[in-house]
């Protein structure tokens, strides 16, 4: 094994010669055409500042639009379908993400292979989401009986234990019993108090299985902004009565989708 000697060659003349087409021994990819030496790029401070400014503006924009929609609904009773809200928020987020990736992460100036890698990951994510949705969103679409039934709040078998009631209901009753000693009036008062004072955290929507497709108004942030409306009377819920009391009833799964 003579490692230090050139190997025998079928075309000995070429053994040390340069292949046609500018063969470059120092170049990892053999030929000059295959690879360009990577230049280190410095993204200027100015560019970074502009990008930051745009990002902050878009953050304000997306927050503003989301709240504007609620406001429009509240005062003009104009309801946008859900997809408007979703697509606006996601489009803005995508633009922001693109800016971060292109400038802060310098993908714009980088080796294209890195862009390809990043796009592949997004593509794989799209496949994952797409096919899973196709499956789970279509239960019972062909044969309705295959849709099965869902028990609202789950079938209550959690690990080794079986809950007496769906968890939300059980926790409410536990609280009522152990903290408030069964005082329903106090419970209602507490709820009203809590919801009244903490507008932002106020759940406006009573449970329903079939409604979707419209955006829901949410708590404002300005104290008293939505004071005029009673919590459950926003016109979209299903009244203040405790719908959830019928939680254990079974409902068709296909109805809980869109």
């Amino acid at each position: 094994m003579n490692h230090n000697q050139p190997l025998r060659s079928a075309h000995a003349a070429d053994a040390h010669g340069h292949a046609p087409g500018g063969f470059d021994e120092t170049n990892p990819h053999g030929t000059a055409a295959g690879h360009h030496a990577h230049k280190h790029v410095i993204v200027s401070a100015f560019t970074n500042r502009v990008v930051l400014a745009v990002l902050l503006t878009f953050t304000a924009l997306t927050v503003g639009l989301a709240n504007a929609e609620v406001w429009i609904q509240q005062y003009f009773d104009i309801h946008f379908p859900t997809w408007v809200n979703v697509s606006v928020a996601m489009s803005i987020a995508t633009v922001k993400a693109a800016l971060v990736v292109m400038y802060f992460m310098q993908l714009r100036y980088d080796n294209p292979i890195n862009t390809v890698i990043f796009l592949f990951s997004l593509f794989a994510f799209a496949l994952f989401l797409g096919f899973t949705t196709i499956d789970l969103d279509n239960r019972g679409k062909v044969y309705a009986y295959k849709g099965g039934e869902v028990q609202v709040g789950g079938n209550r078998i959690v690990g080794a234990k079986t809950l007496d009631k769906p968890i939300v209901q059980q926790r409410r009753e536990e609280f009522l019993k152990s903290v408030l000693a069964g005082d329903q009036a106090k419970f209602d008062a507490m709820k009203a108090e809590l919801f009244h004072h903490r507008q932002n955290y106020h759940p406006r929507v009573e449970h329903s299985v079939s409604t979707s497709g419209t955006s829901r108004p949410r708590g404002g942030t300005t104290p008293g902004l939505f004071e005029a409306k009673a919590p459950a009377d926003d016109g979209h819920g299903h009244g203040a009565d405790h719908k959830h009391d019928s939680n254990s009833a079974t409902k068709p799964a296909s109805g809980s989708g869109h």
Binding site: F128, F131, T132, D135, L136, V150, V152, G153, G154, N155, R156, I157, V158, G159, L163, P166, I167
Partner: peptide, 25 residues
Amino acid sequence: RVFHIGIFDPGLGGDPVLFQHFFWF
């Protein structure tokens, strides 16, 4: 298993078939 977060657990309204999607992806 630890917190019973419910994502794959029909006991809390989760969907066990979703686990199969996650797993087989």
